[in-house]
């Protein structure tokens, strides 16, 4: 996963996770939710952040439709996400992801972009 900067990378990573899990667009009104996570470093922060997105779907049955990272430091992240309730008539579940793992995780700047490698347990 790549992003123009670290904030964009975290946003894209969350979008990738959502795209792996579910497809379909609901016209229902979205519900805004504030997410705050902390981590030991950027890699840990990525696992915690994606873990929140995963839980919203697996635990709360909410599908993230859009998101915006408000602030990001190596040890903390604040974001707004908009969600709609999962609706089996509209949404199709693509894969059941058990967890976001630390296995071989890598979050690092490249020459002119940021890149992350994250392995999901399916």
């Amino acid at each position: 996963m790549r992003g123009s900067d670290v904030k964009n990378l975290f946003e894209n990573a969350a979008k990738v996770l959502v795209h792996l899990m579910v497809k379909g667009e609901s016209l229902k009104e979205t519900l805004p939710r504030k997410i705050s996570v902390s981590g030991e470093d950027l890699a840990d922060l990525m696992v915690q952040w994606l873990g929140e997105i995963l839980y919203l779907f697996e635990g709360e049955k909410e599908v993230v439709t859009s998101l915006h990272i408000e602030s990001l430091m190596p040890s903390a992240l604040k974001a707004w996400v908009n969600t709609v309730p999962f609706d089996p008539e509209i949404h199709e579940i693509l894969s059941e992801i058990k967890a976001v793992t630390y296995h071989q995780i890598d979050v690092a700047p490249k020459r002119d972009y940021w890149e992350a490698k994250v392995i999901f347990d399916i």
């Binding site: 030991e40 873990g51 839980y55 697996e58 635990g59 967890a99 630390y102």
Partner: peptide, 17 residues
């Protein structure tokens, strides 16, 4: 199922810290 996945996740996080 998801019950066990979440328990593993919760404790990996806490133990990591």
């Amino acid at each position: 199922r998801g019950f066990g996945h979440q328990i593993c996740d919760d404790f990996l996080k806490e133990m990591g810290k």
